[in-house]
Design a binder for these strands. Structure first.
Lengths: 355, 355
DNA sequence: CTGAAAGCGCTTACAG
DNA sequence: CTGAAAGCGCTTACAG
């Protein structure tokens, strides 16, 4: 609980501001470009140029203005700059969650890349609901971002249309579709489901099953998984669908439940590595040999999994590459390119068991 | 690699904008508050009130304006609103990294809490360098955030001073100090180091050692660890300092190296769970019984660790609580409270071995 | 290489 | 409950 702490509350603010603040509202807060201009003996326009196109300013002027900026500690107001120039230098990233998630890698490198290019990232967490995403969009658009990163390709028609009308570059990520809103950097969850089913079949699994979260992308993996199994004549696939976000505990609870109703299951595709690790823990407790008696496949290839749970098979996707490619795609367009990136980063199966 | 994709590039933008756009620059982009006002037959001020103080607008007027807003798809421009009101509704969060990191939890809940209160989070990733953090501050302050979340308490004097002068609430997190810039929600890394040392001593360790990243907070844990051991007469503590961010691979490589020069080490305090898990993997390969022959203690209590590596001891810190408390502290102040939160969320040792 | 004027799209007091 | 006027702090063409 917060504890009161006595400290002086005075905040000095415009040491050096010669011109008296004569605004009707707000206190004497912050330096303005005119303060710098006055001190440096130039016009505000020149100060603006020092920040936005230094190459167009005479070296001595540049130096002099910079000195003043430094001395005064002036930081330009980008709310004003953005309004005036119609360039916010802001990129919005809408992601379900960054906690315990592969998305955090994507956002990390996306943000790094963007910031190197002079943009900042407004982070918007949508959770796993569509409606939430759409109301978030308003909030986000109110900042007039110059580009938007979206997670997934399942968006309401209205969101898609509005985003198109705004006319800024958009990248959808972490999924695949033939008709993206604008650009896309992702991979096919359906194909992953198929690949896992195939692997299970190749191992001779007789009763493959599924434990999955109910989010759109997990359900796409499920569809691929089931369709591929159906092709092999397995139309009845035991499954347990859990609410996102998936966790260790969920996986741990799910496996016994699944096996209770379908005792002969010999391979389980888990919607995420966390679910898979949870399931593995449960399997151990039940004395089931993994993968001999029960094969378990995860999704995500969390980096610790290789070290700690070599019994698991998993699907690796490159969240880092998605972040970098998405950033590049956006930046290219912001720099005037006309191509629309459409990138399938693919995936790979990671099998560590020597069994 | 991006692939060109043909799509029509036309972006319709102001369906419904009756007034002709007569600005000197920029295209006919976006709806303005005046467009809504005109359609609704009210003044722009009233439209503004519909968004910012709906309770002060007559119910019928409110309804009518909202209809128009809905119909036109109007989204207020917060760059303009922020400039005019001097309220950006933006909170900056400066964090070293969100990938593979406990900070991602903190940011997740921080962002959720803030957004529920009507604020958005500008994410700034500083990496692990001080200079970087200071130049980031300029970038961040240029957006005129109403509050700032900082990671750690080790900031340059100039950053501290500037932040104080800005006069907005600041929370430092994930560390402890007697003299925060403003508010603080964290815990003592030094105390954690002491606690781990104590645990090792209680277990009868004769040769405790350390594998740690070289970031400030890890070094504080190291100091506590060494000081406590020194009190027990152990002044020579084998250690290996690695560059952040720490990873599994680093831990895996570090342990053999440490043992090569100090073969009789029987307990290792690793700077993070990832390092610890890496070290555990190496120990297994070397045929060392953990924890009987070699105790390993991590830091962070990554949620999967309990399941996958019960041999490890670790220190649990509550990143979620930090995020929530930091958000509350900021919000309280933004709502006019005068107290400055000073919260020690503490930590706990998690020992799973039954040995 | 530098500047005066106008404007970006809102909101703030102040009236009524 | 509603509005006319002024201003927030920048940048954009346009000149020179």
């Amino acid at each position: 609980m917060p504890t009161a702490k006595p400290t002086d509350d005075a905040s000095i603010d415009l040491k050096g501001s010669a011109t008296p603040a004569r605004r009707t509202r707000g206190g004497p807060k912050g330096l303005r470009i005119t303060d710098v201009a006055a001190q440096a003996g130039v016009s505000p326009i020149t100060v603006s140029r020092v920040f936005n196109s230094p190459e167009s300013v005479a070296p001595e002027t540049l130096e002099r203005v910079r000195q003043v900026v430094q001395k005064l500690g002036y930081v330009p107001n980008r709310l004003a700059g953005g309004l005036s120039s119609a360039r916010s230098r802001l990129i919005a990233a809408i992601v379900p969650t960054i906690a315990h998630s592969l998305f955090s890698e994507t956002i990390q490198v996306f943000s790094e890349t963007m910031s190197r290019a002079g943009y900042e990232v407004l982070l918007a967490l949508s959770g796993y609901s569509d409606t939430n995403e759409e109301s978030l969009l308003d909030t986000v658009l109110s900042r007039r971002p110059e580009g938007v990163l979206l997670t997934g390709v399942a968006h309401t028609a209205s969101l898609r249309e509005r985003l198109r009308n705004v006319g800024i570059p958009v990248v959808e990520t972490w999924d695949m579709t033939e008709s993206p809103i604008d650009m896309l950097v992702g991979f096919s969850h359906y194909q992953i489901g198929e690949a896992v089913a195939e692997r299970f079949l190749a191992r001779g699994a007789k009763r493959p099953a599924l434990i999955s979260a109910s989010d759109v992308r997990a359900l796409a993996r499920r569809a691929g998984f089931r369709d591929r199994l159906a092709k092999a004549g397995m139309t009845e696939v035991a499954e347990l669908i859990v609410a996102p976000p998936s966790s260790l505990a969920t996986g741990k609870a799910a496996l016994p439940q699944l096996l209770a109703s379908s005792p002969d299951v010999d391979a389980v595709f888990c919607g995420s590595d966390l679910l898979a690790i949870g399931a593995l823990g449960a399997a151990r407790k039940m004395g089931l040999d993994v993968p001999a008696r029960l094969a378990i496949c995860g999704f995500g290839d969390l980096d610790f999994a290789a070290e700690t749970t070599p019994q698991l098979t998993t699907v690796r996707v490159d969240g880092t590459r998605i972040g970098v490619s998405a950033a590049r795609a956006l930046l290219d367009r912001l720099n005037g390119a006309h191509e629309r990136a459409f990138v399938d980063v693919g995936f790979s199966m990671v099998e560590r068991e020597s069994a």
